[in-house]
Write a protein that binds this DNA or RNA. Sequence first.
DNA 1: CGGCTGCGCCTCGTTACTTCA
DNA 2: ATTGAAGTAACGAGGCGCAGC
Length: 265
Amino acid sequence: MGFEDARNTGLCLGLGSLDRSENHQQSHHQQNKKLSQRFDHFFPSLTLGLSSEEKYQTALHDQSTVSYRQASSLSAVSSYSNSSVKRERDLSGEEVEIEVELETEKVTSKGSDENEEGSLRKKLRLTKEQSVILEDSFKEHSTLNPKQKQALAKQLNLRPRQVEVWFQNRRARTKLKQTEVDCELLKKCCESLTDENRRLQKELQELKALKLTAPFYMQLPAATLTMCPSCERIGGGGENASKSPFPMATQTHFCNPFTHPSAAC
DNA sequence: CGGCTGCGCCTCGTTACTTCA
DNA sequence: ATTGAAGTAACGAGGCGCAGC
């Protein structure tokens, strides 16, 4: 694998963060488009570690405490705080009446997660359906405009802030995965270059040895001498053989390690 | 027109919690 | 039953762009 291959993957090998100035100079729509294109080129397959349905189904529904495991696998609801009765649609689209815990909107989007229970951070677990919908949405656009966020939040019965946070984390996960892929790519490139370097060193040594044992070659500029690293022959036959004793030397012999690992022959 | 301010959104790094082997 | 690792929801800090003044 070489840089050509790397280019073909559409990957940027820079391991740093995205160019912020570039991102921020664009409108959100442009940004969405740009990011989508970026991720469309290479979309690492990620699994979001969905919880098993059984666990949710067997989760206790305790209204007296803040529960974040209560959501059944069929209801696309997961949140926490006070409980309430709400109508939800199950997978078949049928409207069902279930008891859910409604989030009190007192908590500001930037506020802490403190609640009446204390300062403990309560963590919900998104249901499988919610995760699937979020994933699908993310595949369409990796960033959301406020309208999309609202719509998605409404659809999933989550707070817009939760949808926002999910997308932030999802982007971070994607980036992390991409970085890992890039690292692997760089590692392989490094190995390839090391091999090539080793081969060239060997070739150089052999040329030096040849120079000592065959004085005739010394009459020619060193750069015009070419030795095939595979068959280890200098020069060769061909149609130019009559004009020059070293026909291969008439061409500049450049071996590109990225396109021709052993291009000498 | 340029400077200031507030808002919203972003990334990054981290924490706290859940799940699983 | 316990524990450590991995996954992930949520947060705070800090930066940037933009609109309004």
